[in-house]
């Protein structure tokens, strides 16, 4: 990683956040450098949104430190340099798309041109439309556009493309890429590996409130690129490269990073089997695998 050579714009040092008895973030230390496009990847409840809310000044850490642009996120003057995306379900329905952009950008010393911003997120010509009259995808893009309204240095995008169709997703990606190409820093969360692959250079995998992996997209894909090989067989044969195995209703399920090798060895072992299936695991499964490795190591 060459992040140490960049100037740090945001960071947490041993940040822990509890909600009552629940530990949402567990001593997370993370540096976000100027000009980076960082993807936070993890299943629901992993702590991604909590981490974003610490950077956005919405919550304070239970212990540890959060720094933003050399100051504290709790300071409104510091937050002039950031942009955050609201949940689209909460946009004030009675206001018009253009009005909401003007309202948000009025909080910032420098602001993006409204027409240009709307056009960039595929909302050209909709400035006079009431938000209640926009489609779900249009609301989602408007919500993401709001993060950029104040011409920020860093944007924090929490699940920016959830619920969007492919085309709307690509429009949004273009908007995010062009901001990054202009020198902007982006931190986004997702539970889609492909979204992170399409946008991010650096991926931080978060699970159960901890940073499980931090590296390039390729590094992380190797870690989470786990496949599930399953077949019907009377017993579990001894095979190489199995991360995790289980038997359910006479079917053997094996998780592995190298399914080709595993299948070759399965055939070579001569064990009788039927109905072979190889499919990519869900991120959820991949995380469980990483997390359990983490735990056995600890």
């Amino acid at each position: 990683m060459n992040t140490t050579t960049r100037r740090t714009l945001a960071r947490t040092i041993e940040a822990t956040r509890r909600y009552g008895d629940v530990l949402a973030l567990d001593r997370v230390s993370l540096d976000i450098g100027a000009g980076e496009l960082v993807g936070l990847l993890g299943p629901n409840g992993a702590g991604k949104s909590t981490l974003i809310s610490l950077f956005a000044g919405l919550r304070r850490p239970t212990s540890g430190t959060v720094e933003l642009l050399g100051g504290s996120p709790a300071d409104p003057a510091v937050r002039q340099g950031i942009g955050v995306t609201p949940q689209e379900t909460g946009l004030p329905e009675a206001l018009k798309a253009g009005e909401i952009v003007s309202f948000v950008s009025a909080h910032y010393p420098s602001r993006r041109d409204r027409t240009d911003l709307l056009a960039r997120f595929g909302l050209a010509g909709l400035a006079d439309r009431q938000i209640g009259g926009l489609s779900g995808g249009q609301k989602r893009r408007l919500a993401v556009a709001l993060a950029f309204a104040g011409d920020p240095r860093v944007v924090f995008l929490d699940e920016p493309t959830t619920g969007l169709d492919v085309e709307a997703r690509r429009t949004l990606w273009e908007g995010i890429r062009s901001f990054h190409a202009g020198g902007g820093t982006v931190v986004l969360t997702s539970h889609y590996l492909e979204e992170i692959e399409a946008l991010a250079q650096r991926v931080v995998v978060i699970g159960r409130g901890r940073v499980l992996a931090d590296g390039s997209v390729q590094d992380v894909r190797d870690v989470v690129g786990v496949r599930r090989v399953s077949f019907a067989a009377p017993a579990v044969p001894d095979l190489p490269g199995v991360l995790r195995g289980s038997v359910e209703n006479g079917r053997v399920h094996l998780l592995t990073t190298d399914s080709d090798l595993l299948v070759t060895e399965l055939v070579r072992a001569g064990t009788p089997f039927a109905d072979l299936q190889v499919r990519p695991t869900s991120l959820e499964e991949a995380f469980l695998t990483i997390t359990s490795k983490e735990e056995t190591r600890a």
């Binding site: 956005a56 000044g57 919405l58 409104p76 003057a77 510091v78 937050r79 002039q80 950031i82 955050v84 609201p86 949940q87 379900t89 909460g90 946009l91 004030p92 948000v104 909080h107 910032y108 104040g150």
Partner: peptide, 14 residues
Amino acid sequence: ERPWDPYLRTLPAG
């Protein structure tokens, strides 16, 4: 009860 309220608290204003 709307998520808009916490969002407003991320804007640079008290």
